[in-house]
Each structure stands twice: as C-alpha cells, then as structure tokens.
Write a protein that binds this DNA or RNA. Structure first.
Lengths: 192, 192
DNA sequence: CTCCATTTTCAGAAAAATATGAAAATTCAG
DNA sequence: CTGAATTTTCATATTTTTCTGAAAATGGAG
C-alpha cells in the first residue's frame, strides 16, 4: 500500500468495517480510497495505492457501481476512466440506505407477505405466522417512516435529527394545544 | 431440516439474509428457529430442526448470546438449557441496534476521532482529514439522534415513527406559533 | 467422589469467498 | 481496417470461513 499514514489507517479501518457489513474488505478499501481522494482516480491509481491486482480492482469497481456508489468521469485525451464518490456525504448515505433497502428489506417483505398469505397447517405454523406478522408489521413501520423521511431535503433532515426525541415534547405541546377545546381529539397521535 | 414448510421457508430466508449482514447463515437460521418456536428449545431441538451438527449449534448459540439476543431457561428436573428469543419484537430490535452500534459505530468513531487529532503532513492528508471530518460529523449526528430516540418507550417510538415526515409540519406550526410575538426566536430549530 | 448427561472446545476437513494472471474483449486514434 | 491502450472475464490458486467429530470440560445426582 502506498498511502500516507493517515490515509492508510482510514482505508484499513474502512475495509475492516466493510467486511462486517457483508461487503468484502477490498471493495471497502477501494471505496475508502476514492472517498478521501483529492481527485478522481483511474483503476491503476487504485492498484498502486492498495497494492492489489488490476483485475481485483476491476471487479471491485463493478461491485461499487452496482451499488450506485461511484461517479465516473473521462478526461479529454485520456482513454482511462476516472472514478470518484459524490461530494455530498448525505447523498452518499441516502444511496447506501436505498440500495440496502432494495436488496435486503424489499425481498424480505415480499417473502414475509407470501408466508402470511398461506394457510397454516398446524399449530406450530399458526404460531410462526403470528411471529412473522409481528416482524412484518415492524418492518413496514420502519420502512414507511424511512420512505417519508427520505423525501425531506437535507436541511430539514438535519433539523429533524438534531431535535432527536425532543420532538416528542413538541408533539405533546401540539396535542395539548389542540386538545383544549374538545377533550382527547387524537389520542393515538396519528394524523390524516 | 425437519420443519413444517412455512417455518422452513422463513428459516431459509432468514439465514440467507443473515449472511448478507455479516452474520453467518447457520447463526441466522438458529435465530430464526428460536424466533418462531412455540416454546424454548434446547440445543438438540435445534440440531434436529436444522440438521446441523451439535457443535455447530453450540457455537451458534454462543454467538447469539454474545449479541445478547437470547434468553435462557432451565426446566426443573431437566439438565438441558432451553433458549428462546424475547417476546417483544421492539426489544429485540433495540438490542440488535445497540449491539451493532457498540461493535461497529463506536470503534469507527474512535478511529475517526483519532485520525482527526493528527496533524496532516501533506496536502492529500489534509484533504483526507476534511472528508473524514464530514463523515465523523454525520455519524455523530445519527448516533446522537439514536441515543435520544432510544430512550423513548415503545409506545412513543411508534407514535413518532408513524408520523414520519409529517413531524416537519408540526415543527413548522410550532415555529410559527412561537415566532408570532417576537420574530425569529429559534431559527436553527434547536431546543434546550 | 463417581457416574452420566450435557455442553464446550478445537484441530482439521469441507466449503465458500476472494484474488490473481493470462487471455479475450473493447475502444478508439489513425 | 489495424494496432495499441485499456478493461473485463474467467479458470484456477489462495485465503478465509464454516462445519464437524472426537475429546475434554462441566455440572449435578447419588
């Protein structure tokens, strides 16, 4: 690896983390290198920085592209392709979450739904279905929350995240305000 | 595998998903079996249901225990240990998130912090640090949001999730209400 | 303590995932 | 078109992870 110490440490950690996330170490390292690079890099730049084979880089890039995580740029008078990550880190996280959802949550939801449609043929299947239903409902709740929050501009999202659970106080306040005239109007906290 | 078809389908899918989450297939399957079981199971019950070796089950259980995902129970007059998952699925998710945070986010934060303390020794290190700083800030934001929301009772959490981004409207309302008397009082949306 | 049921450990087998180099394919200037 | 530069593919080598059976450890009951 031919990276300055600080960069090397980052890249190594990122690779390590990647491997706990079901992404392979090398792919994680390639991403890390691109993330901190000052300029778009071509495949051979990555080969040099990570000291891995050209073909490995090629496959890693392909993998990252399939996750929509890379931008591509070609320089005039140079046949090589140059890769970089989006500037906006919020955009990166959105992509990451969207892709994981697409690959993991959506297929799971559809399997769970299919299982919930079946008629249980024994007591144990009946019980399994009840558990699966709980899981399905929870995932639906989280998913629809995400679908909703995803639409916010970054500005708003940050505002919301910064508030954290203090939001609950705001909610209480709202409830109290609107509850004054005619008693409990909306006890479950749901809106139209 | 000796499971009714519905259970088998669930267990297989769960194992498959587990392997994308850095958990190995078998461990995922063991968890799935326990999750849908009608009663606590002993290691041999799992051996029978999944058709894997006793030692594999033993290691899988150990792994799940290290994640705090299992409850244990012993039956009077029976020396075997029986395992089950918590009833409350929200509690399960909380545990899961807590553990992942502990193992993945916390170490990453500390590495990033350490890297940010160093003095960059080149332009490329300076740039890397700037990128790392952005990442660090984003993770801090998400983490502190989670730390905050984690404290809510399940009831409240569901309420919050159900609202989704509609919460922003409530915020706007609040801002407008309190802005009336004396102009912009809290433009950044932060409280406390 | 001994005995026996049970669980855990662990070295090595088996399987799966990754990495490589060589060859094939692509791309584009001339 | 040709040919050089570059990228991709793919069979196989390498490494890593997972799984197993045998042996060791544990933990009560008697």
């Amino acid at each position: 690896m031919t990276l300055p110490p600080l960069c090397e440490a980052f890249v190594l950690h990122f690779g390590e983390m990647g491997s706990r996330w079901g992404i392979n170490r090398t792919v994680g390292q390639i991403y890390a290198v691109l993330f901190i690079a000052e300029r778009p890099l071509c495949a051979d730049d990555i080969v040099e920085r990570l000291g891995i084979s050209r073909s490995n880089v090629s496959m890693g890039i392909k993998e990252l592209q399939s996750w929509n995580l890379l931008r591509q740029r070609s320089m005039p008078g140079d046949r090589r392709e140059f890769f970089h990550t989006p500037e906006d880190i919020y955009a990166i996280v959105r992509t990451l979450v969207d892709e994981r959802k697409k690959r993991e949550i959506d297929p799971t939801l559809s399997v769970l739904r299919e299982l919930l449609m079946r008629s249980p043929e024994s007591e144990s299947e009946r019980h399994a279905q009840a558990r699966i239903r709980e899981m399905h409902e929870l995932i639906e709740l989280l998913t629809s929350w995400y679908a909703d929050v995803q639409k916010l501009e970054t500005e708003r999202l940050i505002q919301l995240l910064s508030l954290g659970s203090k939001i609950v106080k705001v909610l209480d306040m709202k409830d109290r305000l609107f509850a004054l005239p005619g008693g409990k109007r909306n006890p479950a906290g749901k809106e139209g």
